[in-house]
């Protein structure tokens, strides 16, 4: 797994690549939460380079999503590959997150 970080406008753009599987989920969650706690604007997670996500990966996003909602900040996801979108749809995560 690889995460690239940019500042776009006032938002942090995280470009994630690789597999969001169980072994990667903890470091992924830690990276997200580090951005949540050290920045004050919105966060956009670009998943174009992610070709696999399991429930552990979803869980990491949910933890970050809850923290951002509590802080009244925006967390958006973008560029989901079709199979990733399917996982989001089945688990109900498509309606929980802003996805573009």
């Amino acid at each position: 797994m690889h995460i690239e970080r940019d500042l776009v406008g006032g938002d942090v753009l995280l470009k994630v690549a690789g597999r969001l599987d169980t072994p990667n989920a903890k470091p992924f969650e830690a990276s997200l939460m580090e951005v949540v706690s050290t920045t004050g604007g919105g966060i956009v997670v670009n998943l174009a380079g992610v070709d696999y996500v399991s429930s552990s990966g979803l869980r990491a996003l949910l933890v970050a999503g809850k923290a951002m909602r509590t802080a009244k900040r925006r967390l958006a996801l973008e560029a989901l590959q079709p199979q990733i979108r399917e996982v989001f749809d089945i688990s109900g995560f498509s309606t929980l997150f802003e996805i573009s």
Partner: peptide, 9 residues
């Protein structure tokens, strides 16, 4: 997202 349970998916 506030109500979503973590885990079980």
């Amino acid at each position: 997202i506030e109500e979503a349970r973590i885990g079980g998916h």
